[in-house]
Amino acid sequence: MSDLSIRIEGRAGRITLTRPKALNALSHEMALEIHATLDRWQSDNRVALILIDAEGDKAFCAGGDITRIHAEGVAGNYAPTRQFWRDEYRLNVALATSAKPVVTLLHGFTMGGGVGVGCHAQLRIADESTRIAMPECGIGLVPDAGGSFILSRAPGRRGEYLGITGHRMDAAEAIHAGFADLFIPRDDWPALTEALVSEGQIEIARRFARDPGAKPLADGAAMIDRVFSARTMTELNERLDRETDPLAEAARKALSRISPLSGAISLRLIREVRQVATLREAVTLEYRCTHRLIDEGDLIEGIRAQVIDKDRQPCWRHTGFDQITEAEIDRFFQPPDGGDLT
């Protein structure tokens, strides 16, 4: 496939995303091919580890191919997107449970579906350009591709904060929140890659690790925990209005732009996922939400406003968080008509 470079080098199976002009956005075909390759390499004795990286300077993977989702959605054809999510979430679980250790090099934008490919690996490496985020509420979706599972395990209420505001984490913040493991400067990546390929041992990456520096999310922990422990989005907004530090101001701006429905569902989702034990259970809950959001939520309108027309003026189904009832949120957590993700 032209969007992927798949090969064995030394002791490593290598997968490189090769869509730099599209910020390495993940298509359905790419997800299927990566999964098939993972399955094939589980029994290949030549492969000691699997190394996933991406071409270009801007992004490891900026998310799923949402322009395609929009085109199919406006035509009322939701089945292809639902199938994509089923296969994508299965890939996320396969990455997390691979018997062969997976290493990912997360440069630039790593968002949404890119988190699904890059952040369920056994060893996740960030550099000075890394910006990791779950920005789905801004397009009318919820944190998916297993992102809700990582968010739910972040310290304190950082998961709710990151999942609802879409805050872009640098390397230090991503390590603090559990989305990455090591900071290794980009100039050291060629030597790192050569060592991984030749030795086939992920532990050697720690030789290259450096201190990532300050962790603003940790510095803002008290405010985040005060605000994002609120029971509802309405209460959360009220608490946020009483805060004065710059992190709170940025959060207020973020909440003013997101889909109210997606924010409310995401708050519930992260907390529901905090109660489950496995990524497999998490993506089952995610799929219940995303399956409905494509036609009962704001997803198609959000993609239009942010990506297609770029007018940044979405017409959300609700104008405020106070319009959303618990019963409405409950509906998104019911098994879909075609049954749960398996």
Rank of each mutant, 00 (worst) to 15 (best):
D311V: 09
F84L: 10
P260C: 06
V142R: 00
P260R: 03
A248H: 05
D298G: 10
R252A: 05
I6W: 03
I202N: 07
L279S: 11
D65F: 06
L26M: 14
H70K: 12
K253F: 03
C119T: 13
T342R: 14
R207W: 03
A171N: 00
A251F: 00
R317A: 07
I66K: 12
D44A: 08
M134W: 04
Y287G: 04
R280H: 13
R317E: 04
V142K: 01
I15E: 01
A94K: 15
L182I: 13
T284R: 15
F208R: 06
C61N: 13
V117H: 05
T110E: 01
D211E: 14
G114C: 04
L32T: 12
P143T: 05
R168P: 00
Q83A: 12
P155S: 02
I202R: 14
R90V: 05
D322W: 05
P101C: 10
F109V: 12
C289V: 12
W41V: 09
E128H: 01
A22G: 10
P80S: 07
H167A: 06
I125Q: 04
P185I: 11
D322T: 11
I329D: 08
R158G: 04
R11G: 06
A222C: 05
E55S: 13
P80H: 06
R292N: 09
L91V: 13
L267V: 02
R274T: 11
Y89E: 14
I52G: 04
R19H: 05
E249C: 06
A282I: 08
R292Q: 14
D87Y: 09
A154F: 00
F149P: 01
L95K: 08
I224T: 06
V273R: 05
A282N: 09
R7G: 11
Y89W: 13
T232C: 00
S256I: 03
L106Q: 14
S148Q: 03
Q201N: 14
E29H: 12
A251K: 00
R82G: 09
T97F: 01
G200D: 12
L91N: 09
F208D: 07
G63K: 04
E194R: 11
V307S: 12
E55I: 02
L162D: 01
E326K: 09
A195N: 10
H28I: 06
A59C: 10
E281I: 11
D39G: 13
T278H: 08
S152T: 07
N24Y: 11
G118F: 03
L162R: 02
V102L: 08
R239C: 04
Y287I: 07
R271F: 03
M233Y: 01
I329Y: 09
T342F: 04
G297P: 11
L123C: 05
T319M: 11
